[in-house]
Nucleic acid binder design. Structure first.
Lengths: 171, 171
DNA sequence: GCAATACTGTACGGCGTCGTACAGTATGTG
DNA sequence: CACATACTGTACGACGCCGTACAGTATTGC
């Protein structure tokens, strides 16, 4: 049915922001995947296609950073898009380590359809949310990303004091 | 290592909210997982434990709804927690289909440690973000979830009254 | 020139979640 | 009472992403 995850009186709502954020992300992926299903794409593929279409040939590492996933993951995404002839890998003359991922004519065609779907869905999602609220959301999330990044690095390096856990076999 | 996904001048920031949200969610999971690693828990397990600890025995379906994951997924989560003796499944007398998931003494112990980790990390994440901004974030995301949910159902059911012209859907 | 170091993309195994199909139980209808 | 329908939890296969290890290439220092 409704599947609203954190409904009204479950718990202090400000206490469970993580849960809300996580499930919102899952819903977001589900919504885009559903709308993009006719094009046989998922959200990651569509984002990649849109990016390459807009900014031209790009290295895989840059794409991975931009989409916020790992270099290993981006490889298989590109593999599939390439197999469908939507992007192509071009060697870069002055650096033979990297591939430049470029859009093909077919990919450009599809990118336009993606943009359309994207616009329609985004309009629906904006419903009842004001412009400045959206901007505030974006700002807070960017800030949150910074805090998260430093929190993660701070975790992996507790500096001097090691804990006593018995595994600790790596690195 | 930096992994700031949407940095300054990549693209119109308002256009890529989905990407930002997705990667923020991944970072959030990563941050909690890192902090909870000493307890050998991930974010989902910790959330479940915290919820059961606070609200008492709960059916699996309710837990799944609350955490925003499927019923199938919640089963294996509970399996693992049960194997470690952190929760237990109690039959409910008046409905023998369901299990009530209840916390054990060991689980309650761990839940306190979780709450501590949670509080510390959350304090770090709040850095540079005001109280009303956090509340606005929560509000917008809740609203967004509603829109997402109806967008998904609307996708799967083009319903009775479709519009006739393929374009001109909004605007 | 040659070695040491840094960086890019790939291979592989693992984890978490999804979706569907299914068995067991409850609830409503004749 | 028998039957159909709805709901809960489980089994199984699939997908997306992660993390580590690795080979190929660039860059720097000698």
């Amino acid at each position: 049915m409704t599947a609203l995850t954190t409904h009204e009186l479950d718990s202090p709502p400000w206490l469970r922001v993580e849960t809300t954020l996580m499930s919102t992300a899952r819903l977001l992926r589900a919504a885009f995947d559903a709308r993009l299903a006719p094009l046989d794409l998922n959200l990651t593929q569509a984002s990649l296609l849109g990016y390459v279409n807009e900014f031209g040939p790009t290295t895989q590492t840059h794409l991975a950073d931009h989409l916020g996933i790992g270099r290993a993951a981006i490889g298989s995404v590109i593999d599939r898009l390439q197999a469908r002839g939507l992007v192509e890998r071009q060697p870069r003359l002055d650096d033979r380590r990297v591939w430049l991922v470029a859009i093909t004519p077919a990919g450009g065609e599809l990118a336009r359809e993606i943009a359309e779907v994207d616009q329609v869905l985004r309009a629906e999602l904006r419903h009842g949310i004001g412009r400045e609220e959206r901007q505030a959301l974006a700002w807070v999330m960017t800030r949150l990303q910074q805090n998260l990044a430093s929190a993660i690095t701070r975790t992996s390096q507790p500096a001097a004091a090691p804990n006593l856990s018995p595994d600790a076999s790596d690195r």
